[in-house]
Amino acid sequence: MVDFGFSINKDRQIDFDNADRRIIEYVAKEESTIAICLICGACTATCSAGNFTDFNIRKITNMIRVGEIENLKEEIKKCMLCGKCQLVCPRGVNTRNIILKINEAIKIFHE
């Protein structure tokens, strides 16, 4: 193989048909309230972890739906499981349990 001094960029586009959806499917089954999340960001606004790290539970909830799960294991470690997010959720999504279920799913499918 020839080295031309550059490599072919990886496509940033989410290829939904080939996305790894095992985590969202597991979480949706175990914690069905994820389906009614409005992705409003109230959880992230109040998040104890999110105020001091780049942890973003709203983003994680959305990202796993489209199979964007890179660094997920490291990301969810930042959650302190305090439950403030659940308190503010306008739709009663069990956000805290979503983190626990993501953790389970990672163990099942990615370890």
């Binding site: 586009q13 989410i14 939904f16 048909d17 709203r58 983003k59 959305n62 990202m63 489209v66 964007e68």
Partner: peptide
């Protein structure tokens, strides 16, 4: 279909 998942901040394609 080509769309941006604006909440993921990434372009997305889906059949």
């Amino acid at each position: 279909v080509k769309v941006e998942d604006t909440l993921a901040g990434k372009p997305l394609k889906m059949n």
